[in-house]
Design a protein around this nucleic acid. Structure first.
Length: 534
DNA sequence: CTGGGGAAGGGGCCC
DNA sequence: CGGGCCCCTTCCCCA
């Protein structure tokens, strides 16, 4: 028995080594590509910012403030190749995809509720004609994290929750902006969302070990999500025939995919990932499956090697609470010299979104300034200088349904609809909620608090809308009329139920006698009365 | 007993 | 964070 066990362990270790070696090479290759493009982007951003400032100055001189093309759009347009005009960037909305919503309860660390906001930011105007562009993203906490993490010590106590954002090449490889060489303005910066898929593949079983605590379901849910993303991208890219798909071109950049890699390693940074920029793909999907599963995964030991030092697996229950697992590992891989071409992973470099906003703090500031100026310009354009208020652009897109929101926080919350992330849990029951307000409202169930009282009767309600709805009883408001008869109802659902009468819908069949009912409650009552003794 | 209607409870989601 | 709406479910009443 012992011999068999040892043999099994040895085999597992071998699998781990083999798979990891391949995986490492793939990562390395992609990271190198990423690094090169990121440097180009940084340079590009700075250049664009300068140009923007220059243009702004010129415009002020000419006393002709832009109206139709705002600064940001010019900035973006330039970033795509210097074109200032063009069609709207159009996100072709994919078919409604809600694969992640399967109503299965999702347990997730509440910390995920504070996950960073990563959303696809819609292009508010032109620049589409400039060819494949960059969908900007925001990554809150990016700078903090980037600058605060101690990548040398690997102190696991550092930065327990900061989001994992794109790694800074400068930090790791010691390559400052000065090394930036590219002057290519039209460089297309893309994110291979497929990486996420790849990551999930690896994560699901990076070393040939299924983690019992991390059931495949969450992982399997990734696929449709990213396929959807691919569709989105492809559709988008087809707008002008200038697809963003770089195909086999290695000139792809991806700023945040290192976290997928991180995940793919089955690392326990899942929790952090859920708070990190991995969140841009899904605030919690990627993390939820593993959040509670610490210790059930094989994690790679700390990797902060600047050279070709061998990586070692630590199959023991290594808890790398610090920063080392994700970025540092990849930072390390960036430094790996390899010509290995990933045979399968990262092959789909569909650019969906990037964190190719400013990738360093300086550029970030510039970027934010541009965004702010954009908002102001928009407000001025639309409101004649009035406060922006409800005319905010909905630039921030849900990556699942492309719905637009005015700020990344809202997208993050909205995306919980798709991810099923429910960071807010009731302390008195099992209920979990995606929104703090829902939890607060729910807790009235436990406290019995009913702050909404009817002024015309003694009834009180815990639900504000319940009161409003109830008051229709007093007002006699029956806004919901049946189109097929004279009946009207105070509640929409009443009408809906009533319509079933007309439609003859009897969807609920008794399993005992076969009798059918239009309502489940009718069926239940019927069964209680007639078949309760069965 | 059956079936329809009235109304409340409560979660999801968006503004 | 609160307000508001939608939806489903459940309970009750009554013809």
């Amino acid at each position: 028995m012992e011999v068999l066990a040892n043999a099994a362990v040895a085999e597992i270790c071998k699998l781990v080594d083999d798979n990891y070696a391949v995986f490492r090479l793939e990562i390395s290759q992609s990271q190198k590509e990423n690094g090169a493009l990121r440097r180009k982007l940084q340079l590009l951003e700075l250049k664009m910012a300068r140009e923007r400032a220059e243009r702004t100055r010129r415009e002020h001189v000419l006393a002709s403030p832009p109206r139709s093309v705002n600064i940001l759009d010019r900035y973006r347009g330039l970033a795509r190749g210097g074109h200032l005009t063009g069609g709207h960037r159009r996100f072709v909305k994919p078919a409604g995809h809600n694969a992640l919503r399967d109503d299965q309860p999702i347990s997730i660390d509440e910390g995920s509720g504070t996950s960073t906001r990563h959303v696809i930011m819609i292009e508010s105007a032109d620049a589409e004609a400039a060819g494949p562009g960059v969908k900007q993203e925001t990554s809150e906490g990016e700078e903090d994290q980037r600058h605060s993490r101690d990548i040398q010590t690997g102190d696991p106590t550092i930065a327990p929750a900061p989001p994992r954002i794109q790694s800074s090449i400068m930090e790791v490889s010691g390559m400052p902006n000065a090394v930036l060489k590219s002057e290519t303005d039209t460089e297309t910066l893309t994110v291979p969302h497929r990486l996420l898929h790849t990551g999930s593949d690896h994560r699901s079983d990076p070393v040939g070990l299924e983690r019992p605590g991390c059931p495949p379901a969450p992982g399997s849910e990734y696929l449709p999500v990213f396929h959807q993303s691919e569709r989105t991208v492809n559709s988008h890219g087809d707008d002008d025939g200038d697809t963003l798909d770089t195909g086999g071109d290695s000139s792809c950049s991806y700023a945040t995919e290192m976290d997928p890699v991180n995940i793919s390693l089955g690392l326990e940074r899942q929790t952090d990932l859920s708070r990190g920029d991995w969140n841009q793909y899904s605030s919690g999907v990627y993390s939820e499956g593993c959040l509670d599963k610490k210790g059930e995964v094989i994690v790679v030991d700390e990797v902060k090697v600047e050279g070709n030092a061998p990586l070692t697996w630590n199959a023991a229950d290594t808890h790398l609470e610090g920063h080392s697992q994700g970025r540092d590992f990849l930072d390390y891989t960036e430094n790996l010299e390899t010509t290995h071409s990933p045979p399968h992973a990262f092959r789909d470099r569909n650019p969906v979104s990037t964190s190719m906003g400013p990738s360093d703090s300086h550029s970030r500031v510039l970027f934010d300034q541009v965004l702010n100026s954009n908002d102001r310009a928009t407000a001025q354009t639309q409101g004649g200088g009035a406060t922006s208020g409800n005319i905010k652009e909905k630039r921030f897109l849900c990556m699942f349904c492309n719905k637009g929101f005015s700020c990344p926080q809202k997208v993050e919350i909205h995306q919980r609809v798709h991810t099923g992330v429910k960071p807010f849990s009731c302390t008195q029951c099992h209920m979990r909620f995606a929104e703090a307000g829902s939890l607060k409202r729910h807790q009235r169930v436990h406290t019995g608090e009913k702050p909404f009282s009817c002024t015309q009767c003694h009834m009180c309600f815990s639900h504000s809308f319940s009161l409003k709805r109830h008051q229709r009883v007093h007002t006699g408001d029956k806004s919901y009329s049946c189109p097929q008869c004279e009946k009207s109802f105070t509640h929409q659902n009443q009408l809906k139920m009533h319509l079933k009468v007309h439609m003859g819908e009897r969807l609920f069949a008794c399993t005992h006698c076969g009798k059918r009912f239009s309502e489940r409650s009718y069926l239940r009552i019927h069964q209680q009365k007639n078949h309760s003794t069965l």
